[in-house]
Structures are given as C-alpha cells and as structure tokens.
C-alpha cells in the first residue's frame, strides 16, 4: 500500500467523511423519529384537533377517514414502520388543508428560503468578517472602538424593527426596491439584509474577540519577529486559526435561517419555509409539520457534515485526531 505523502491528506479526509456519514445514520433516524412523534405528542386526540376547534361537532365519517389516512387506527409500531417506509420512498403524506403532497409544498417553499438564506449568509459573512478584519487592521482608535462595539448592537436589533425600518426607507421613501413579494433578486435584498445584520454581528463578535486573543499568541509574535507586516500576520497567520469557531457558528445559523425566517418572510410577504410552518401550525396541518421537521433535520445533518469537512481544510490537526479516535 502506498505510504501517504506528508501533506497529502485527501485519503484521510475521505476516510473521515465516510465515518461521519456512518455516524449520521442513527442521528437521521433520531430526527425522523422525533418528527413522527409530533403527531403523538399533541395533547388529546390529534384527529379531533386537526378537524375542529375545541369541542365542536365533528363528522364521524370524516374523522374515520382521516384516522385511516394517518394510520392512527393501527398499532404504534405499525404506524412507525409505515411512516419510515413512506419516507424512504420520498412520501411525506398530504397536506390536510389542500391535499397537495407535502414534498411538493416543501420543494416549492424551499426555493425562496434557500435563496434568502444563501444571500443573508453571504452578506453576513462579508459584513461580519470584513468588520472584524477592518477593526483589527485600522490604525484609527475611534474606528477600532466603534467596530468592536457595533456587533453587539447588530445582534440585539429585533428583526421586525429592522425590517420595518428598511421598508420605510428603501421601499416607501426611496422606492428603490419592491416592498412585497418574491419576484426577482431585487425583492430578496431587504429581507436578506434584515437576516444578515444579526448574523454579521455574531460573526464579527466571535471573529473579533478571537483575533484580539490571537494577537498575543506566540506564533503571531514569531511571525512579527520575522518582519511580517500587520496585514500579513492577520491574513496569513491569525485568520485561519480563528476561523474554526466562526465556521461552527455559521453552520448552526444556516439551519435557523432556513426555518426561522418567519418574521422576515411575514413582513416582506415572501413565500418560504417559515411561512409554511406558521401556516401549518395555524391550521393544525400536522403532516406538513412532520415533513418540515424531517426536512430541516436532514438539512442540519448535511450542514454539519459540510462543517466537519471544512474543519479539515482549516486546521490540519483535525484530520490526524479524527482518524484515531
């Protein structure tokens, strides 16, 4: 067998990825089990709740039909296995409201959500990392002080307030972008900024404090002792060492951007997963909720896999410890 060249890490990386994939299987099962459990965790009879409000009259025939459709008339293990089997075929059931397949609903809503989350993520990274790097490099004390305090402010701004403010200024006052809807990239700008601001704050906060700590590290002093400029030390030495927590943080945030953009989607009148969740909750549309929970769970697993792979590019130590643990 070929002895791996030092520095050639792709073999080890693939082995690690394979192990992580195996490890993801039980997590995946856990996630779909929880999603399955949603219907059974509703206090009272889920069919009653889904069909009516409170103790109002319910058509017994409809009730029986729904019970059968949701397989609630069968023993729990049967239900569970049937749910898994359907899931395996990519069948998440039908919406109680419209009768459309849940997968179609999710696919429809995921598009705008992904576009929004992606744009917000990119903006947040640019603003956050840019702010932290600028704060570190600037010679101006005032700018440094401002940039080190701004992140906390950005994190604490409530989304509904930012969204309303942005709408007031850029749509109603200046008329630069449409206020509502999801048509075209221009309509994505304002909601993306709304979501990006707190994200940028968190990233700038974590990266900034990481960089301020790294400044005193021995390897940074050594680099400066070689004659490196501050810019070189920051870009070449400090940034990659500080990036790991930022990547972790970004990974966990993406999940919440996908499913949690309720406020932004509501205010800007955008379709998306957040809206779909709110709508399904209001109408007790449990198959849809089940489907979204499973979808977001799987997405989170994929993101954390991606984050794990990113680690191995950022920090060579990750690979060597991962192989023998």
């Amino acid at each position: 067998m070929r002895r791996p060249r030092p520095g050639d890490r792709s073999g080890i990386r693939w082995r690690m990825l394979r192990r992580r994939l195996y490890a993801a299987v039980p997590v995946l099962l856990g996630v779909v089990t929880v999603a399955f459990g949603i219907v059974h965790l509703i206090p009272g009879d889920p069919v009653q709740i889904m069909l009516g409000t409170g103790g109002a009259f319910v058509d017994p025939e409809r009730e029986a039909a729904l019970r059968q459709e949701l397989r609630l008339d069968r023993p729990l293990p049967d239900q569970y296995l049937a749910f898994l089997a359907a899931l395996f075929r990519g069948d998440l059931g039908q919406s109680l409201q419209t009768g459309e397949p849940v997968t179609a609903l999710i696919a429809e809503a995921a598009g705008p959500s992904l576009a929004l989350a992606g744009t917000a993520l990119l903006l947040g990274l640019l603003l956050g990392a840019g702010g932290a790097v600028l704060g570190q490099l600037t010679g101006s004390r005032v700018l440094r002080a401002v940039l080190s305090r701004l992140p906390v402010l950005a994190m604490s701004l409530p989304a509904y307030w930012v969204a309303t403010l942005l709408l007031q200024i850029f749509s109603f006052h200046l008329g630069l972008v449409p206020a509502l809807g999801s048509t075209g990239p221009r309509a994505t700008i304002l909601p993306a900024v709304t979501l990006a601001l707190p994200l940028a704050g968190v990233i700038a906060h974590v990266l900034g404090s990481g960089l301020r700590t790294a400044e005193r590290e021995s390897y940074v002093l050594m680099a400066r002792a070689k004659g490196a400029t501050r810019t070189r030390v920051l870009l070449r030495h400090m940034l990659r060492n500080t990036a790991v927590p930022v990547v972790t943080l970004t990974g966990t945030t993406v999940g919440s951007l996908l499913g949690g953009a309720v406020v932004a989607e509501t205010i800007f009148g955008r379709p998306g997963l957040g809206r779909l969740i709110v709508n399904a909750l209001q109408h007790h549309d449990y198959p849809v909720l089940q489907g979204i929970a499973a979808f977001l769970g799987v997405t989170m697993i994929l993101i954390s896999l991606l984050v794990d792979v990113l680690y191995t590019y950022l920090d060579p130590r990750v690979v060597s410890t991962a192989v023998w643990r």
Partner: peptide, 25 residues
C-alpha cells in the same frame, strides 16, 4: 524597525509548542 526584524535581528522564541503556527506547513 519592521524591516530589521527577521532580516538583521532574528528571534528564537521560548516554547516551540506554541511559537509555530499550527495551521501552516
């Protein structure tokens, strides 16, 4: 002064475990 560092004045720091950047070859 920076142009002197490394070029005319070299420094060997104390603890080799932390004075090398862990993420660079």
């Amino acid at each position: 002064r920076r142009r002197l560092r490394g070029r005319r004045i070299g420094t060997i720091p104390q603890d080799p475990a932390v004075a090398l950047n862990p993420v660079l070859p």
